[in-house]
């Protein structure tokens, strides 16, 4: 089982990074929606800490993924060039931008509240924005908009992968098993 990508297949590292990030993002979206709706209290205060910890983890994973893909470039898209490849390319770039931007806007908004951002309820993460009510409102609004865009993108990405898989080109299979069936 190859760790590195080849011109035609995804290596184990890329697939692990992809599916771990996907799982974390789905957990994060569920957690974020739960936090937005709940009445805060001492019993659920830890959920805020968990959200921040997982968000920083996603940021770390994305940076690792970018580094890995520089070291081990991803395979070419299946099939010939066309509008769908351009759309997929744009979608992947949007994913990277959002998965970097969302944790950063959440981190900045939390910094602007003046309350420490903790990782794993143990380490204080340095603030990246000045303490300011206007800043807090701006960053959390941006966080909200970016998150909604990400939800839309995930739906489109998932549907596109399913469409191509059902059309028989093996795009989804390649991300699961590393290479297409044939």
């Amino acid at each position: 089982m190859a760790l590195r990508n080849t011109p035609d297949s995804f290596g184990l590292v890329t697939r692990l990074l992809h599916w771990t990030t996907a799982l974390l993002v789905i957990v994060m979206l569920s957690l974020g929606l739960r936090i937005a709706d709940m009445e805060p209290g001492l019993a659920n205060l830890w959920l805020y800490g968990l959200h921040k910890t997982l968000g920083l983890t996603v940021l770390g994973l994305i940076l690792v993924r970018i580094g890995w893909h520089i070291a081990s470039p991803v395979p070419r898209p299946i099939g010939g060039p066309g509008w769908d490849h351009l759309a997929a390319r744009a979608g992947h770039i949007a994913f990277y931008l959002l998965l970097i931007g969302i944790p950063l806007s959440g981190w900045a908004g939390s910094s602007a509240t003046g309350i420490d951002v903790m990782f794993a309820d143990r380490w204080v993460v340095p603030p990246i924005a000045a303490v300011s009510e206007a800043g807090e409102a701006f960053w959390f609004r941006l966080h909200d908009i970016q998150t909604k865009l990400l939800i839309g993108l995930i739906i489109v990405h998932g549907l596109a992968a399913l469409k191509r898989e059902t059309a028989g080109d093996g795009t989804l299979t390649r991300m699961i098993r590393g290479r297409t069936k044939d």
């Binding site: 205060l45 509240t113 003046g114 309350i115 420490d116 303490v131 300011s132 009510e133």
Partner: peptide, 9 residues
């Protein structure tokens, strides 16, 4: 966190 919030702006 409550102490930080209390003393914050």
């Amino acid at each position: 966190f409550a102490a930080q919030a209390l003393k914050g702006p």
